[in-house]
Design a protein around this nucleic acid. Sequence first.
DNA 1: TGGGTTATGTGTAAAGCGGT
DNA 2: ACCGCTTTACACATAACCCA
Length: 370
Amino acid sequence: MPTIYDLFGYPLDDRSKVVENNRKVCQCPFMGTTCDGGGNRYQTEIKLTQTEPLTQYFNPDIKAVVPGICSIMAGEDIWVVCPRRLLAMRYGGEGLPPVNHQLQEYERDVLVNAGLPRGVDIGIWSEVYLKQKAADADINYHFDYIAAPLINVSLEEALWQQNLSDIQIESELKGLVEAAKKSGYYPKGQRNPAKVAILLPDITHPYILEVMTASTSGSDSEHSTDIRSAFRNAILSNDHTSPGINKRQVWGRMVTQLFAKTALAYQWGGRTVWVIQDKLLRNIELTTRLRTSTITNNPHQNIHLVVMHYEVSEDGKRKMAFKTTIAGEAGIDFEGNNTFTDILLSKAAPHKIELLKAILRRKLDAIVHL
DNA sequence: TGGGTTATGTGTAAAGCGGT
DNA sequence: ACCGCTTTACACATAACCCA
């Protein structure tokens, strides 16, 4: 029967005072903010009403909790189900995030092995949405993270560097300034914002980081194996059964994005890097023809994977760690080649300005210096 | 008790839902 | 578009049952 392994960042069997106090305020040790269950577990939020047994457990000022399940033990294997467990670049405070704030050792390894430049300040933005109105269809990309070196320039100058015509610059500048204002990139009462130097991403070689984790499936609320019940029972009695792992669904998600987003970054002069746990990759290799060990490295049109795993140390304790990187040719022409593999590619790459605009709609989540 | 049928249990794929 | 959780559908295995 599957069980919860990591709960609010620590193994369930760790009931030490420090860890329990951390859980009682729903803190995610990786984000340094309140646990959000990976950003998409709102439906399973538990309201801490008077009749809810968990109300006694959590701090009195907490009114609702999202089940803070980071990973699930199924058989011999531990499956990460929360993307924050692999990589969390978030800042909940006001203003600019401190450099390397809450940066775990394995996260640093991920970023270095993803190929981010060393020795410079790099900005990281999470949940960047890029909307593009095409003729018939609305294209809507969602990037887990965008990383790019930080530079101190005005928006006007940033546009010049993109080799745009004066007319293009004029038409784009207003929207960009608007977005930047809204997201707090300017101090208040700025007179000529377009000409004022602010902290901007240098998107010459943007990095897209996508974190893939398994999701749960096969729960049965009558047998208390749904997420809510498992979470509740685990906290209150340790005795619980959690849902299992829906491996196939992850594969499906990954296939639809792997090529499109890789192609997109390639056309922008950057790269997309996939952060994935070894268990998940292994499962994909068991169920498909893919065998990463036989893939030869190739500098062009690369798919980049950063593989993570639970490392077992000598004392038997497990900790999250970087395992390896895998890179290889995508195997399809990113311009399309009039075969059915064209189904894997998006219609067109939006102009890079759209990426900049999408970034400026978000506030800076992390600054790292590797 | 053998042989067959019917209930119950278990695991996985796919559909559906509600949220961003 | 994307994401994760729940529900549903289905295949298959095992248990329970029935009767000659």
